[in-house]
C-alpha cells in the first residue's frame, strides 16, 4: 500500500498501423485486476466498409487530461508518474463527460456499474515494475512497453511522438505513438 516500484525509465509506445486485429490485447487487458476483468483497450475496424484495417487504442495519459478537467465529481486524478487513473469509484456519478471529451475516445461508461472505467496502464502491474498486459502479448509490435533505447533499436525508421493536434488543441501525452522518422506531432484535423 502506498509503495511502488514504477519504472520511470520505461514508456509505452503504440503504432496503430501494426495492429492486426487479433484481440490478444483485449483478452490480456481483461486479466488486469484493477479493471474488474473488463477490457479497457479498444480494438476497432477503422472503416469496415472500405477496409479490414484495425486499430488499437490505449489511454494516452495526457499531461493536461481533459477527462479530469470536465469531470464534475473530481473523480479522475493523475498521479506523480503521470498515470491518469480510472474514475474514483466512490465519486464517479456516471455523467459521461469524460467519455465525450476525451479526444482519443478512450474512457468507457460501464452502464450497469454506473461508472466510468479506462486504461490505467495496468497500474497493478506497472506499479510493481512489470509491463502492462496488452504490451506483453501483442504479437505485431503495435503495443510496446520498454525503454527509448529499446524502441530505437527495434524501430530505427520511426520516431516516438507524444504531441497531438486536434483542431486547434495541442495535446501532450505520456504514451507515444510511433510516427515516420523525424515527425514531431500527429495532426488530427479532418476525416
Amino acid at each position: 500500500m502506498n509503495t511502488t516500484t514504477f519504472r520511470t525509465d520505461q514508456e509505452f509506445f503504440f503504432d496503430p498501423q501494426r495492429c492486426i486485429g487479433c484481440h490478444a490485447c483485449e483478452m490480456a487487458c481483461a486479466e488486469c485486476e484493477t479493471n474488474g476483468q473488463t477490457a479497457m483497450i479498444h480494438v476497432d475496424y477503422v472503416d469496415r466498409f472500405l477496409s479490414t484495417q484495425t486499430s488499437v487504442q490505449v489511454c494516452m495519459h495526457c499531461e493536461d487530461p481533459v477527462c479530469a478537467k470536465v469531470c464534475p465529481a473530481d473523480a479522475i486524478t493523475k498521479d506523480e508518474f503521470g498515470i491518469v487513473h480510472s474514475a474514483n469509484t466512490a465519486r464517479c456519478i456516471a455523467c459521461s463527460n469524460c467519455v465525450q471529451a476525451c479526444p482519443f475516445g478512450v474512457p468507457k461508461k460501464v452502464e450497469p456499474l454506473d461508472l466510468m472505467m479506462k486504461c490505467n496502464m495496468c497500474y497493478d502491474r506497472t506499479s510493481a515494475g512489470k509491463k502492462p498486459m496488452c504490451a506483453t502479448v501483442c504479437p505485431s509490435g503495435a503495443l510496446f512497453y520498454g525503454t527509448r533505447e529499446q524502441i530505437g533499436r527495434n524501430r530505427p525508421n520511426s520516431s516516438p511522438v507524444n504531441t497531438f493536434r486536434f483542431g486547434q488543441q495541442l495535446v501532450k501525452t505520456k504514451v507515444n505513438i510511433m510516427m515516420p522518422k523525424g515527425a514531431t506531432e500527429l495532426v488530427v484535423d479532418s476525416e
Binding site: 479498444h42 477503422v46 486499430s55 475516445g105
Partner: peptide, 25 residues
C-alpha cells in the same frame, strides 16, 4: 463519437505514414 475519434486518429496516422512513403517503420 468515441469510436469515431479513434478512427480519426488511426486515419491521420495512416495519412502521415503514406505521406512519408512507408506504412511501417
Amino acid at each position: 463519437s468515441p469510436q469515431g475519434k479513434r478512427a480519426l486518429l488511426a486515419k491521420a496516422h495512416l495519412k502521415a505514414r503514406q505521406k512519408a512513403g512507408s506504412l511501417f517503420g
